[in-house]
Simulated scan of single mutants.
Amino acid sequence: MTTPRLGIAYVPTHAPETLRRLATTAEEAGLDDLWVWEDCFKQSGLASAAAALAWTDRLRVGIGLMPAPLRSTAVTAMEVATLARTFPGRLVPGVGHGVQDWMGQAGVRVASPLTLLREHTTALRRLLAGEEVTTSGRYVTLDRVRLDWPPTEPVPLWLGGVGPRSLALAGELGDGLILANALTPDDVRGAVEAARDGGAGEGFDVHATLIAATGPHAQDRVDREVPLWGREPGQGVGAAGDAQALATAVGALADAGATAVAIQPTADEPDVEGFVRFLGREVAPLLSAR
């Protein structure tokens, strides 16, 4: 059985000034990854990733997800390339449709999110590869654009989505798939199959998020958290209990196809840094011993 990468999800309901301590604690605790979000209208995923990368030396930082409607393809390429050159091998950029209601609020909602994501991803990948790109699509238009400072090594580009066509597109165009945060192992298994239908092959990565809590009243806290993300308690979403309980839940997601799992603390977690240390020192060794 493959041991998944274990990380922590930095939920943007926390104030930006809390990120530094969380990132450095995650690295000190031995976690593999830190995942930052770009939810409207809370925090910039790229700005958060840049800060976390600068404050750490080893930690891999993923962005899940940058909404394609919000971001110019050329500017996204410039920003990703800058971080990839400055912190080689440690950045995982992810792109997606964005929440459509939020895109409407921002005035950037499009008629065909799938078309936009295809055009954006295709052009972005070519730019990051150092190519000169000219394209005139329905949404993405570039005229002889080439980065002066493309990444010095390939940058993995992951896609996110929910519906079957989006999952298939991730399998077709992405190096990995970023899934929503309130899924069961069966949900993950189905999403992986949809990505494979789109063409995902060997080496395709899948990122899942696990809502989790430990300590007193852990199950009650998870049961209160899960409905905030569109699911009901008792449906197999989330994990509560000791290190073994969390390791078992992470292992179930890995067995369903996840290659990386980020733990999302509940909103009422009283000691986020202590929780991060618990993950690195108690849960991670159990995963390695599977």
Rank of each mutant, 00 (worst) to 15 (best):
A182L: 00
R21V: 09
L179Q: 09
T86F: 01
A262D: 14
E119W: 03
Y10N: 12
T259C: 11
E202I: 00
P12I: 08
A195Y: 10
K42W: 05
D223F: 02
T259Y: 09
P154V: 02
W158N: 02
H217Q: 15
D223C: 05
D101E: 13
S112R: 15
T13W: 14
D39V: 07
R21A: 15
L228Q: 02
P151A: 08
C40D: 03
A129L: 09
W158R: 05
P265T: 00
G45V: 01
R21H: 11
P216L: 06
L167T: 04
A129H: 01
L128Q: 09
T141S: 08
G30R: 05
T121S: 14
T184V: 10
R277G: 08
G45L: 05
A260H: 12
T56R: 07
P12K: 09
W35G: 01
W229Q: 02
V206M: 08
R85A: 11
P227Y: 10
H217A: 15
A26G: 09
L117W: 02
A260L: 07
A249K: 03
A49D: 06
G104R: 15
P156K: 13
R71A: 06
L253H: 12
V99A: 14
V276R: 01
P270R: 06
K42M: 13
I263C: 05
Q244I: 04
L53I: 06
Q219Y: 09
P285M: 13
L117E: 09
A200Y: 13
V162Y: 15
R224H: 07
T141C: 02
T121C: 06
T135I: 07
V140Y: 03
D220S: 09
T73D: 12
D33Y: 11
T76M: 15
Y10E: 05
A168P: 04
H97R: 06
A212H: 13
P265S: 06
A123M: 11
W229Y: 14
A170M: 02
R281F: 10
P216Y: 13
V75H: 07
D220Q: 15
L210W: 14
T25R: 13
R109V: 02
L117K: 13
H97P: 00
V237K: 00
A111Y: 01
R58M: 02
A256H: 06
W35C: 01
P164Y: 03
V226S: 04
A262N: 14
E132Q: 14
A218H: 04
P151V: 05
L167S: 09
L83K: 08
A195S: 15
L179A: 02
E17M: 08
G257I: 04
A254H: 05
A47H: 12
R58K: 07
G199H: 02
T2V: 10
D271V: 00
G234C: 06
A245N: 08
R144L: 02
L179D: 03
E153T: 14
L70H: 14
Q235W: 00
I8F: 11
E132K: 07
P113A: 09
E202S: 13
V92H: 15
E202C: 04
A47R: 08
E131V: 14
W229I: 00
M78Y: 12
W149P: 03
T56G: 03
T86H: 08
G137I: 13
F41G: 11
E17R: 12
Q219P: 11
R21Y: 04
E38N: 12
S72D: 15
T152Y: 10
G130K: 07
H207I: 10
R224W: 00
C40F: 14
L83C: 10
T184Q: 01
W35A: 06
T184K: 01
G230I: 00
R146W: 06
